[in-house]
Amino acid sequence: MNELRKLGLIEFIASPVVTGGVLHGSFARQGLVIESEQTHSSTEQMKGLCAGTWHMASTAFDNVLAWSGREGHEIVAIAPAAQGVALPVIVRPEIRSWDDLRGKPLAVDAVDTAYALVLRRILQAHGLEMDNGDYSLVPAGAPPQRYESMAKGETFAAILNPPWDHRAVEDGMTLFGDHREVLPDYPGAVYAVTRTFAESNRTWVTGFLKGLFDATGWLLDPATSDLAVRQMSAGEGGGEKPVRARLARVPRELTLNRDGLRVVLDLRVRFGMTPGLGSDLATYVDTSYAEEAMKTMR
């Protein structure tokens, strides 16, 4: 048997499709073993991707826009990692109105990327402008770190992705709103690679996507999904309900939602942060790997 090729994946939260694919042997059949790691921040994630510490990232598309070309590598999105996204704004108990956030520090991952811009857009809709000094942003890191910053009273609001939003509410914090009021078409995470790595390792990149597609079928096919959920919940030890909740956001196809990606690009331009490689969406997207994978999987 040929030795499996190791593919390093850096994520914010473990993907149910990757977890399921490992259990089902979807990646092994493509000659791959997936070594996944959870990041503490998008800065760590994207610097590591550019440095070759990891081969692929599951990340917000805005991080692709912000980092492509920054560390000497073009970065492109190749497939969706999540179908839709939940971006709830959580505030500390003492915050009773949007105006109570004036003068307060707010927790974000990085101050100039991804959900920080979403938070700015939500606050803008409620009359608060960062450029006017109405609030400040603190780069606290990923959702667990943002939650911790709020719990300590260092910051007063943040976008907290599930399950950290539920934990914060259980601890007495308040759900104040979410991205849908201003950005209803904001997309979920994408799988991203550097062009250099992808072009030199096309077989492995398409193999990863073939593994994703195979695992998705196993997870979502009514004939096998119950077995898949039982196996995943047994491995994770958290019961079947959270597994099923995560599967509800699994993309059915490897097709990127270009309209959603355009929303992300337009938001960055809105705040005067046009990506360094320009405002042409095609610069940051390469669907050829997914198209090649799908041809052989149909």
Rank of each mutant, 00 (worst) to 15 (best):
V138K: 05
R146V: 03
D112W: 03
S97D: 12
P105Q: 07
V138Y: 13
I122M: 15
D112G: 01
A107W: 04
R146L: 08
L137Q: 03
Q145K: 10
R120A: 15
V108N: 03
E148S: 13
Y115K: 12
D100S: 12
A116P: 03
A142V: 06
A125V: 07
N132S: 10
D112A: 12
I95K: 02
R92L: 08
A114Y: 04
W98T: 04
R92E: 14
D99H: 07
Q145C: 01
D134V: 00
E148R: 13
I95C: 09
E94C: 08
A107D: 03
D99F: 00
L137E: 10
G141Y: 05
L137H: 09
L137P: 04
D109L: 04
P88N: 11
M130Y: 00
P93S: 13
Q145N: 10
P105H: 09
T113M: 07
E94Q: 13
A142M: 09
P88C: 13
A142S: 15
V118T: 10
P143A: 11
A142E: 13
D100Y: 07
A114S: 15
D131E: 13
R146A: 10
L123Y: 09
R121D: 15
P143T: 05
L117I: 05
D99N: 14
E129N: 09
A142Y: 04
P139K: 02
P105M: 09
R102M: 09
V91Q: 03
Y147W: 13
A142L: 04
T113W: 02
A125K: 08
D134E: 04
Y147N: 00
L119E: 06
D100M: 09
I122V: 15
H126L: 00
V85W: 01
Y115R: 08
A140H: 02
G103R: 00
L137M: 13
V138P: 00
E148K: 11
L128K: 02
E94L: 08
A125W: 02
L128D: 09
E94V: 07
Y115T: 15
L117G: 02
K104C: 07
S97N: 07
D131V: 03
R146C: 09
A142F: 07
Q124K: 06
